[in-house]
Design a binder for these strands. Structure first.
Lengths: 237, 237
DNA sequence: GCAAAAGTGTTGTCGGTACACCCATGC
DNA sequence: GCATGGGTGTACCGACAACACTTTTGC
């Protein structure tokens, strides 16, 4: 009986690993932040062959009872100590993307506030560091493509929402917000137009505080406003 | 013998779905088309427990050497005989979304031209049919959420691209294109503004043909223009 | 001739962009 | 006093929305 069971288990496992359904499912996290007013991505020293020791995106297999979103949040927490809402970017599934075996990966985007970017890596990872996007080295797996897709998504969102504020501390000046937008979009913005639009859209509200520092006029401090309802009427086109 | 094999398969499947690393990976296809000027989704009679016999999205596990995109294209081909480019929507991964065992699914959107909507189901599926989105019944799994997400994606794309033309035959009149946009967006459009914008964006070109039919003035026939480069300069905001 | 869809222009509004100067402070 | 970033208003333009009538055909 015991033998029969072991035999069954063995075959079941063979079936499982050779069956088309037995494909690894992982998440990769593209955590973006501002470092010296430049967009930077969080990379970790990988521990798994064949890329052990190289810098790559944090990530890993999803757990049995876990959604992809939960797995991504867990991985981010383990590697950085940060809890964040993550946005799905898309799935990457080239059969040869992981030389260690078939594994698809769903990429997630996380925005990290500048103040939180001081890392508290756990013992699990020796190295965790920010790398400016503009001068990114070659990355293992298909991580370069994933980073590019996530950055594109952030750009799209920045053009219509206040997501760039999540790259800043809870309160910030309009100058800081403008520099965040510029870093994400990769363009220079006109201060007057930028302020006008931020005001019109009602994305931020004044806190009443004033921040002074540097040899210049003090700046009003703002925070993001609780999301306005985006349900807008659609007109004719 | 046949019984033993079936029994073994059943247990192997149970095993596979209970192993942490062995999470099923599937695709679901949301094929959208126009039926009588209304947006409709392709559903098939499911064959797998516990929803056998119910209508649901076509889909299935991905193969060992297959990308998600290839799997989605294959499933669509198998169920409808149609070859189409598919767009990723997003991944759905609630642990309990499939009562038969842990399985994440990546949803794909396909647009089917009205002329191709005559189905040629293979013997593999008894039932394949179009269902108007507006009056969709309850669907098994999380298919309702998936359909909604795909329809949203189609709406977004319709507002900026000529994707709605892919719901039509290769050549079409502007009236047909307008009705396609209206069906997708769920609003009435102004004919003059619609034509003006289509012309300005250069999304379509005249074929030179004239289509006459019905007791009214004949219409010029158009086809989509090879994609204009969407690389546009970004201005200040 | 009449029903039915095709086809066509103008006007007002609004959002986006370009552009230049004064303000408050630290040094 | 000067360097630095904060803060403000106006004018032009292009995109979008609203709006009505003539054209061509089938019946």
């Amino acid at each position: 009986m015991a033998f029969a069971l072991a035999d069954f288990m063995y075959h079941a496992q063979l079936m499982a690993s050779s069956r088309p359904g037995a494909i690894g499912v992982a998440v990769d996290i593209v955590a973006l932040s501002l470092q010296a007013d430049r967009l930077a991505v969080l990379l970790v020293k990988l521990k798994r062959a064949p890329y052990e020791g190289r810098w790559g995106l944090p990530g890993g297999r999803i757990g049995a009872g876990e959604t992809l979103e939960a797995a991504a949040a867990r991985e981010l927490l383990e590697k950085t100590g940060l809890r964040r809402e993550l946005m799905q970017v898309r799935a990457f599934s080239a059969p040869d993307r992981d030389p260690a075996g078939r594994c698809i990966s769903v990429a997630f985007l996380a925005t990290i506030a500048a103040g939180d970017a001081q890392l508290s890596p756990t013992s699990k990872y020796a190295g965790v560091a920010w790398f400016p996007l503009a001068e990114l080295q070659r990355l293992p797996y298909d991580h370069e493509v994933i980073v590019a897709a996530a950055a594109d998504r952030l750009r799209e969102l920045t053009e219509t929402t206040a997501i760039a504020a999540t790259l800043l501390p809870p309160s910030f000046t309009l100058g800081e917000l403008q520099r965040a937008h510029e870093a994400v979009l990769g363009v220079q913005l006109d201060a007057r137009n930028f302020r006008k639009q931020v005001a019109e859209r009602g994305l931020v509200v004044e806190t009443g505080e004033i921040r002074r520092g540097g040899r210049h006029r003090p700046a009003k401090v703002y925070r993001v406003r609780a999301r306005k309802n985006p349900a807008a009427e659609r007109g004719s086109r």
